[in-house]
């Protein structure tokens, strides 16, 4: 990933535009034949995808069992609500923490690995978490899931905002998404992010520059897992339940597909593009055929074969093709002005 323009800014123009566009979504989404809950889903999965891409796109660490942390966050949200206190802040903090702790635990065992071995270890641990979730019937409800998770109100002391409507929830999740995006944008372009990117390009070189590579790999995995857990907590709240299926191998595969199709390897926003395409495709193609995954799978193969940098990469490519023409025009214009 090359350093994009505005990398030094906390909030970029692109972010503002995106935020504004997203804020209008509830006003028109029903008119284009979709529904407000899809917007909620897209935002939650976008947080998850951005967190995942911190690991894959920035640090170059392939995690194929990331659903585990998303799922753990969802369970943590529900269980805290049931057993500790029904406070939104507490439950979300628990989701973040649970994802982070599980991630740290796994990172402890895998951070000295590289490449395919690293990937295999993440799958193995992901499967362990999934299996435990299914088997611990007493805690997670097993395959029946954890039901009746409530959408807790946003308690601001004096006022309390109810989130039970999808539109209210949408705006709450949008706020969370914007915060996560700002935080991750900054993190990606901070010294920490630069070191992660260096590690992706050459672990050996980074080590010889004095960077304790394992510690960085540990840290980024933990952060990514924590944020995935946070997204999972929001997801539990959105769908009023938590199920083990999001922890399964093929759900873990979905996030990889979303990020790669969207172009997470070349663009910070690629994962968001991927999520939108994936979820809209699910609903639109899914309306015509039950085997929508087949069609999306074909799209995925096409992207990997013909445009491995994903949709964001393709857009960047077109942009660059346009660029010289505009430059030439600019030069001509300045000549005219000077002449």
């Amino acid at each position: 990933m090359k350093t994009p323009p505005h990398a030094e800014k906390l909030i970029t123009p692109a972010m503002l535009v995106l935020g504004l566009v997203l804020a209008t979504v509830p006003l028109w989404i029903s008119r284009v034949g979709l529904y407000p809950y899809l917007g909620v889903e897209i935002l939650i999965w976008s947080i998850y995808a951005l967190a995942f891409n911190l690991l894959l796109g920035t640090a170059g660490l392939p995690s194929f069992g990331h659903g585990a942390y998303f799922g753990i966050g969802a369970y943590a949200f529900g269980l805290t609500q049931f057993n500790v206190a029904p406070s939104l802040w507490l439950c979300l903090a628990a989701a973040l923490l649970a994802g982070g702790i599980a991630g740290a635990l796994v990172a402890l065992f895998i951070s000295h690995r590289r490449g395919i071995y690293y990937a295999f270890m993440t799958i193995a641990f992901g499967q362990i978490f999934w299996f435990v979730a299914i088997k611990s019937h007493g805690i997670t409800g097993g395959e029946d899931g954890l039901l009746k998770i409530r959408r807790l109100p946003v308690d601001l002391g004096l006022v309390s905002i109810d989130l039970s409507s999808n539109t209210a929830l949408y705006y709450f999740v949008l706020l969370a998404f914007m915060l996560a995006a700002v935080g991750l944008w900054r993190l990606t372009h901070s010294p920490f992010g630069r070191v992660l990117s260096a590690i992706r390009q050459s672990e050996t070189r980074a080590a010889h520059l004095g960077y304790p590579v394992r510690l960085y790999k540990f840290a980024v995995f933990t952060i990514s897992a924590a944020l995935s857990g946070f997204a999972g907590g929001l997801f539990a709240m959105a769908q009023n339940s938590a199920f083990p299926d999001v922890m399964s191998l093929h759900y873990s595969g979905y996030i990889v597909m979303m990020v790669l199709v969207g172009g997470g390897m070349v663009s910070f926003w690629g994962p968001v593009v991927g999520v939108v395409v994936f979820l809209v495709a699910r609903d639109v193609i899914g309306a015509y055929t039950t085997s929508w995954m087949l069609w999306f799978g074909l799209l995925f193969i096409a992207v990997v074969l013909f445009k491995p940098e994903g949709i964001a990469g393709a857009v960047q490519g077109w942009w660059r093709q346009l660029d010289p023409r505009r430059l030439r025009e600019g030069a001509r214009l300045s000549q005219v002005l000077r002449g």
Partner: peptide
């Protein structure tokens, strides 16, 4: 990224490197 002062701030995620 090779500078010792950069390395000293390697875990700093709150400020921009650029």
């Amino acid at each position: 990224v090779a500078l010792p002062e950069f390395r000293a701030r390697g875990f700093d995620g709150r400020r921009a490197a650029v």
